[in-house]
Nucleic acid binder design. Structure first.
Length: 341
DNA sequence: TGCCTGCCGCCTGTAGTGAG
DNA sequence: CTCACTACAGGCGGCAGGCA
């Protein structure tokens, strides 16, 4: 008899990767190998840890495939789901790399396990809110020479893709704060804050004006933060769960793009550009062997366990599904939080 | 009035079952 | 063996009531 277990985000990321690679139900040897692999990790091999069973991994794949199918999702891209309704193919024509110091112990050649791959957020020109970038579809250069990328926002359909100025409106994703990180939120800090209004609930840049510290209880941080939103200068008190901190600066990002899929005018070689504040860079990548000529949805290669969704949010948030952007529900930025279920 | 706590409902993830 | 579906447990947020 096997008890009910809950897979960690690292495990889910690993299984998602298998699912993405195979795009089919894994065979028994693969599942068995994956089971052994998971059980070899510190999460499962330590004292008092509950090892996962083959049947549990198998069931997970079954359920995952079924739920994806039911929701009309495509196989996940490196631990991140593509936007709902994404029907295009998704060769790895683009990928985002950060040029952080090489402290990575790349596991078994898995590109997603090192620090070189990052998650981005982009500011929608439509409403000025920040959304997680789920996939970069294409890129181009504007008349002014600025780099622009066409993105899918996480949780939105392909019909809502937008062109984003890389320099001005693309950056590393903000990180939701865990309870113990409230002490790091100080007056004057730039944060990403979840603003809930009757008509919409979106993430906007904001600055911390005041911090009201309170004793934490079983539910975690009870502190409150007075913030002023940059876009409308409104002020409000928010709990920590609505606060996402900006990652440390001085991180360079490379968006590696397959030239064969980019627009003709984007045929440039390794162009570096500075952005705010994380210096996002777009560079052509190696030729794609796929040989497709139409524009394709290309997933970001993102680090499943490197950012909020899999580290911070692991303890405090659930998984998120897509929501229409117009509704602007909490799910619109699901990777950061799940408010107002 | 604000804080604390418990209850309730919803949602999600995992397990179980039957059909093909 | 996979797929489709359901059952169930747990987490989370909202809300109301009690209390200082």
């Amino acid at each position: 008899m096997t008890g009910r277990i809950r897979f960690t985000h690292a495990e889910v990321a690993k299984m998602l990767e298998v699912l993405r690679d195979l795009n089919a139900m894994p065979k028994r040897p693969i599942i068995q190998g994956l089971t052994d692999d998971l059980n070899a990790s510190p999460d499962r091999s330590g004292d008092g840890q509950v090892p996962v069973q083959y049947s549990q991994v198998h069931t997970w794949f079954q359920n995952r495939r079924y739920t994806q199918k039911r929701r009309g999702e495509r196989p996940p891209a490196q631990g991140k789901m593509l936007p709902t309704g994404a029907e295009a193919q998704h060769p790895a024509s683009y990928r985002v790399q950060s040029s952080c110091p090489s402290n990575s112990e790349s596991q078994s050649g898995n590109a997603s396990s090192d620090c070189g791959l990052v998650q981005l957020e982009a500011k929608s020109p439509t409403n000025g809110a920040w959304f997680d970038v789920a996939a970069i579809l294409s890129y181009r250069f504007s008349e002014t020479g600025d780099q622009e990328i066409q993105v899918w926002f996480s949780g939105f359909g392909a019909e809502e893709e937008e062109w984003i100025n890389v320099c001005k409106s693309v950056r590393l994703r903000s990180l939701p704060c865990i309870d113990t990180e409230c002490v790091g939120v100080l007056p004057g800090d730039l944060i990403l804050c979840y603003q809930v209004r009757k008509e919409q609930a979106l993430y906007f840049d904001a600055h911390v004006l005041e911090v009201e510290r309170r004793t934490h209880d079983l539910r975690g941080c009870r502190c409150s933060f007075l913030v002023r939103y940059d876009h409308d200068h409104s002020e409000e008190m928010v709990p920590l769960r609505k606060v996402c901190r900006r990652p440390s600066a001085d991180v360079k990002i490379d968006i590696v793009i397959d030239d064969s899929l980019a627009e003709p005018k984007a045929q440039k070689s390794h162009k570096r550009m500075d952005t705010n504040p994380d210096e996002v860079t777009v560079v052509p990548g190696p030729p794609n062997q796929g040989g497709r000529s139409d524009k394709l949805a290309a997933p970001l290669l993102i680090t499943p366990d490197s950012t909020h969704r899999d580290s911070v949010a692991d303890e405090q948030m659930g998984d998120i599904e897509a929501a229409p952007k117009g509704e602007a529900t909490s799910k619109a930025h699901g990777d950061k939080m799940n408010v107002g279920a």
